[in-house]
């Protein structure tokens, strides 16, 4: 049962990884990278590591995505200032 869930999640994660690399729109690429981290936290939970799952859910999908978006905002704002 665990293997089936991991295979399904893994296929979604690999698709999201390809999207994160190939997409031209930076915001969509950042969100795809966040999806990878969120599904990775489910996989940690299935692999009996709840501590790691909590950390990954809070940091990988929350703070990392936010930091990328802040960077994007700062760069776009720099464009407008000219």
């Amino acid at each position: 049962m665990i293997s089936i869930i991991i295979i399904v999640l893994g296929i979604i994660m690999i698709l999201a990884a390809f999207l994160a690399i190939r997409l031209k729109n930076l915001l969509s690429a950042i969100i795809s990278a966040g999806v990878i981290s969120l599904l990775a936290s489910v996989i940690y939970l299935l692999l009996a590591a709840p501590d790691v799952a909590m950390t990954e859910a809070a940091i990988g999908s929350g703070l990392t995505t936010i930091i990328f978006i802040f960077t994007l905002k700062k760069i776009r704002k720099g464009d407008l200032d000219d």
Binding site: I21, A29, I30, F68
Partner: peptide
């Protein structure tokens, strides 16, 4: 930024 996204995928 795409290179840093690749880095975070390697991390995961």
């Amino acid at each position: 930024i795409k290179i840093v996204i690749g880095f975070s995928i390697v991390d995961t």
